[in-house]
């Protein structure tokens, strides 16, 4: 019966650094863990399933008549806006869940294993792209049901969807940072909302910026969220790739370049 324990310990090869390949493999395994957790507790998908449905319905019928004259002509404006707003705010959950996860005993084991230090973080963030994908698909489906038939065609919609998921992943590093440094999960939620609300509402997501005061227009125009919304509108409504898409991707890259290292460092310090 004790076959396993009877085998003797063999001498082993030791390395002090984990390779890039190992980091990637470890991160994929951690992402796999994230997916398993979603499978085990599907109720954590409530926010990404209900929010796109409710928000799309609500904002379209509240603002539609006032802003665009009627609901149908508001759809090309609001659907990209709602999409960006919903998916980006979904990325807050990444930070909250990371905090909860890090407080559990299993994180001690991850830290004591000879794996790439970044893997538990990167894996968690990777697994969350599945959440963004669900929110993206549902928003487009809701729009379609309400009569949104964008000119750009299916391929442009898919590219737009991928763009939003990539940017949301980048933004989630910000919330992951809060998740690592905060003491409780609810404080992560609090700080993140403080960042998220100005960012999503002080943009062109819901209304055209030209009726706002000048100082606000200035902010709206430099807000990366506005560029992402415009990029999605260009793609879905006319199938064109504009300068806004480049700006969005550069913005995403900058966020990752800043927040990935400081998040990992803060995470390591807590180790």
């Amino acid at each position: 019966m004790n076959s396993y324990l009877d085998t003797h310990i063999v001498d082993r090869q030791l390395k002090n650094k984990s390779s890039f390949r190992q980091a990637l493999m470890n991160s994929f395994t951690m992402a796999f863990r994230g997916l398993l957790k979603i499978k085990r507790t599907p109720e954590q998908l409530f926010d990404v399933t209900l929010q796109p449905i409710i928000f799309t319905l609500m904002f379209t019928y509240i603002f539609g008549g006032a802003i665009a004259g009627d609901v149908k002509s508001y759809l090309p404006v609001i659907i990209p806006g709602i999409l960006v707003q919903t998916v980006i705010s979904t990325s807050v959950v990444t930070g909250v869940q990371l905090r909860e996860d890090m407080d559990k005993g299993v994180f001690d084991r991850f830290k004591s294993l000879p794996i790439a230090r970044i893997a538990p973080l990167a894996g968690a963030l990777m697994a969350d792209t599945i959440r963004y994908t669900i929110a993206t698909i549902l928003t487009f489906v809701m729009g379609y049901i309400m009569g949104y038939h964008p000119e750009g065609g299916l391929s442009s919609i898919i590219i737009a969807g991928i763009l939003v998921v990539v940017c949301a992943w980048a933004v989630s590093w910000i919330f992951a940072f809060f998740g690592v440094i905060a003491r409780t999960a609810s404080s992560v939620q609090g700080i993140s909302m403080l960042v998220l609300f100005p960012l999503t509402f002080l943009s062109n997501a819901f209304v055209p910026a030209n009726t706002m005061p000048n100082w606000l227009q200035w902010f709206v125009n430099i807000n990366p969220i506005s560029h992402l919304v415009t990029a999605v509108r260009d793609l879905t409504n006319s199938g064109t790739v504009g300068v806004d898409m480049t700006i969005s991707l550069i913005g995403a890259a900058v966020i990752v370049a800043i927040f990935a290292p400081i998040t990992v460092r803060a995470y390591m310090r807590r180790v």
Partner: peptide, 29 residues
């Protein structure tokens, strides 16, 4: 990182994943 290849740690509070099954835990580790 070398030390981590030489040790196993069993904590006072179980360091396994509560929401997963025993098999899933062991497979992931």
């Amino acid at each position: 990182q070398i030390v981590r290849q030489l040790i196993g740690v069993t904590g006072q509070y179980a360091s396994v994943d509560e929401s997963l099954s025993a098999t899933e835990n062991l497979i992931i580790f």
